[in-house]
Structures are given as structure tokens and as C-alpha cells.
Amino acid sequence: MKTEKLSFKRRTRIDYFVNYLLFFSVVIAFITLASLIIDIFSDGWKWFDWQFFNSYPSRKPELAGIKAAFYGTIWVMSITALLSIPIGISTALYLEMFADDSKFNKFIKVNISNLAGVPSIIYGIIGMAIFVEFFQMGRVILAGALTMTLLILPIIIIASQEAIKQVPSYYMDAALALGATKWQAVVKVILPQSIPGMVSGFILAMSRAIGESAPMIAISALVYITFLPEGPLDRFTVMPIQIYNWISQPQDDFRGIAAAGIILLLIMLLSLNSLAIFLRDYFQRRN
């Protein structure tokens, strides 16, 4: 390429052209997102009503609903949050505040970032091997929640570590100078200061978990559930599995039902993400 010989005018024109060409790729991404949303709403909107929300799955499209899957998702997510948030915060506090630079601690850090890259279906089959088979739990909510905990722990730990790093180091210095022990400084000063940053990380991790289908399929398999789970040892299904189930039905009407399920899923994710953004802005303004 001999651009050196191109005239200034010509190069200015190329520059304009490249600018618009690059912008065009942004437009493609935008158009795709728009057509995805339009596709789903045009297929699913007419099925998205109270009857759909309040019914169990059925072989007849007009009677099918997402109630069991919705409750299954709520159950799995609540237990996952209850388990993964305390474990995530503790691990992050240890790694950022108490761990020295020993080889072992470095290994833990590298290990966590590698765990974050393991495909979710692998977590699914490992969860099946450990919780369903080895601990003999069966294909129940608790096994699903434990698997999901393993899956999102690396994300939660990394987000919490980032939040802890954001706290200025003079907070620690000031607390120590006032005679606090390191433990007191961490628990009473650093932790409260970093919680706002952690919260949006938790919400984003949970919204990732709500949309995960593959590991839940490995745990719960394809079940036909027409009851509401009453405890963590009941069998269950979650929304993404139910949606996948409807997509793979041959009748066209079930595609519409699947789209209605996707609308509900997207609404839940959107509200979670808005909540995360709102909390982030709220805490930023308060500080």
C-alpha cells in the first residue's frame, strides 16, 4: 500500500469513507439487536397474558404457561444468592486484605480467573456428578442452586475484589492509626465502603445466572412439571429450560409461547440491570 503517494484530497475522502464504514458496523450491531427484539415481541406478544403467567405447561399451546418454571427460577436464584454472596465476599476479602504474596495465594487468584472461563455446560455435568449422583441428592432445586453457585462464584469474587480495590487506601490507614486491629478495620471500614460497588456486581451475576440454560439442563433434565416446588428437595424446572423445551416443539404455536417466555425473561433481566445501574448511580451520588 503506497498511501504516501495519495494526494491530500484523496486521503481526506478515504478518511470519511473509513469513518462511515466503521460506523456501519455499529449500525449492524444495532439493527440486529432491534430485529431480535422485534422478532420476539411480534411472535410472543399475543401469548403474553395473565393466563400464560398463571398456568402450568400443557400439550395444548393455548393452555400452556410458565408458572412452574418461574417459581423454579425464583427458588434456584434465591438459594444461589444466599450461598454465593457470603462465600464470594469472604473470598474477596481474604484475597484483597489478608492474603500475602505467597505462591499459594497467587495460585488461588489465577485459579479463580481460570474458573471464570470454564464453559457453563462443564459446570452442569460436574454438578450432576457431585450433587445429583455422588451426594445422592437427585435432580432437585438444591443441586441446581449449588451448581449455579459454583458457576457464578468466580464472577462474584472478581466483582467484589474490584469493589474492595476501589476503597482508597487512606481509609485503612486512618482506621489503623486510630488503634483498630486489621480485622476491625476491614470489617467496620473497608467492607461497608465497598458494599455499594459489590451490589451491582451481585445483580449482574444473578442476571447472568437467570439466563443460564445449559448447566440447568444437565441437572434437571427435561421434566414435565405441573406443580409448584415446596422446598429445596423438590424437582424443578427453570425458565430457560422451559423456553428451550417450547422452541424444540414441532407446532408453530409453541414458538409463540417460547417467545412469550423470552419476553418475561428479558423483562426480568432488564429490571435487574436497571436496578444495578440505579444503585451504582445512587451510591456514587451519595459519596
Binding site: 439487536l33 431480535l36 420476539i40 443460564e212 440454560s213 423456553i243 433481566l269 440491570n273
Partner: peptide
């Protein structure tokens, strides 16, 4: 960020039906 946050089952539906 929205594109990155869409669940893969939704992308699958989009691939198959659109």
C-alpha cells in the same frame, strides 16, 4: 452491554426463527 447480557437461549431462538 445489552447484546452481551442477552441469554444464549434467546440467541438460539433468534437464529432459528429469524
Amino acid at each position: 452491554e445489552v447484546l452481551a447480557g442477552i441469554p444464549t437461549v434467546v440467541y438460539g431462538y433468534f437464529a432459528l426463527t429469524f
